[in-house]
Design a protein around this nucleic acid. Sequence first.
DNA 1: GCCGTCAGAATGTGATCACGTTTAATCCGG
DNA 2: CCGGATTAAACGTGATCACATTCTGACGGC
Lengths: 242, 242
Amino acid sequence: MALKKAMIMTAFAAPDKSSLDNNPSRPAAVHEEVYQRLRRAIISGQLEPGRALSVRGLAAEFGVSAMPAREAIRQLAAQGALEITPTRRVAVARMTQEKLDELCDARLALEPSLAGRAVKAPPAAREALAATLTEIDDALDQAIERGDSADYAKYNSEFHFALYEAAGAPVYLGLVESLWLQTGPFMRVVIGRLGTSSLDDDKHKEVVAALRAGDAEKLEAAVREDIMQGMSNIVRGYSPDV
Amino acid sequence: MALKKAMIMTAFAAPDKSSLDNNPSRPAAVHEEVYQRLRRAIISGQLEPGRALSVRGLAAEFGVSAMPAREAIRQLAAQGALEITPTRRVAVARMTQEKLDELCDARLALEPSLAGRAVKAPPAAREALAATLTEIDDALDQAIERGDSADYAKYNSEFHFALYEAAGAPVYLGLVESLWLQTGPFMRVVIGRLGTSSLDDDKHKEVVAALRAGDAEKLEAAVREDIMQGMSNIVRGYSPDV
DNA sequence: GCCGTCAGAATGTGATCACGTTTAATCCGG
DNA sequence: CCGGATTAAACGTGATCACATTCTGACGGC
């Protein structure tokens, strides 16, 4: 029981305080931090589908009162990450075959064109982004070699969102975040089932190359292939109900 | 001031109780009803962009305590309908040119293919849907003749969502709802500015025809054209800041 | 007439409590 | 050893309160 508690604590790890907190002016709202930590944990697949969450439980985990936990839960439920059962209980959203198909279609419809917008950034910013992406991708490759599926999921999401955030398209970004919040938990299950060995041929190198070349079409194609490859892995590792 | 109060009351009108409440088993949560009414008001453009909302104000409007109002606000903010200012105040999201471009792109990327799924429904359900759509479209035409831009926006949203809900694609539907929550308020401003006279050539008839024919491609094309036409109207009526 | 000041009203946020429901555990009879 | 009933714990939800911050508008000096 103490072990499980420790696992939970790491899943909801606080953001790295050593990095610069780029908003020194205003202290962040408590419910906002709860939301962000929970969101990261879900996107990077640290919470398995069907995992029950409770207002009081979350509040205790984060050392806050019930109110911020409630707000974070409602926000994530609105984005499709959490399900509210008919009896009003809260759990990480489960996956179905139909939902998986929809998520795949929607990701292909949105993410490539979102990524494509990143090439419109000024060359200096583009180069900086490429450097950041390479850095993340290196960490990702190391995670694969290590067989660390948790870090893989983490760096994979960081890679994509570093690219997407650079596109400067907040509406698109919000939609895509919702999609990742719905795929994240299930993705992790699949990776844990298949292992990281089958993931060493992602298209991230092509993404960076196309970004450096300023070739929007190639960038979109690379992202599209990356998504399709990742989703086909999911299908390979799929089993119902979970 | 009493007049303004009355206007607000109509904007947040309660759903028609005479219609069947299709879930007699469990009483809906209070915050859920607040959310639904607010959501409808926003999608159908009854709240102008920049309109300030407050927890206590909303709670008073709906005759509830602050808590359900807070939850509804947070949910809608998570969907992009409401903005939270740097000082943590809440207002209906404003429009910018960049956001408008994004919304247009995203709608074109999602809504046609969502609508296209509706043709996969069994013929009987498709025919019933076509009948419903025709009914809504008639009311819509009458609203146009009347020059009633409020009813126009209402029936237009009802037309689209009747179609989209029939597609049976909840993930897509959630994304599209988010887009409408962001376009709704601004749409209404534009319609009010242009009048309804410029809106009598929508593609709804083609939509219904394609649905009846079971022609997914034509259906998608008709929806695409309807979106483009509606969005071009917005561009025509656009002026910054609002 | 304009702008800065300042007091009062309004607001977001977090905490806590109460109530009815739901889930989990316990116990008991077979 | 098992299954159903009963009791206890946990939960979601709504209400209310306190506090710090922010907005509003009136007032007064320039």
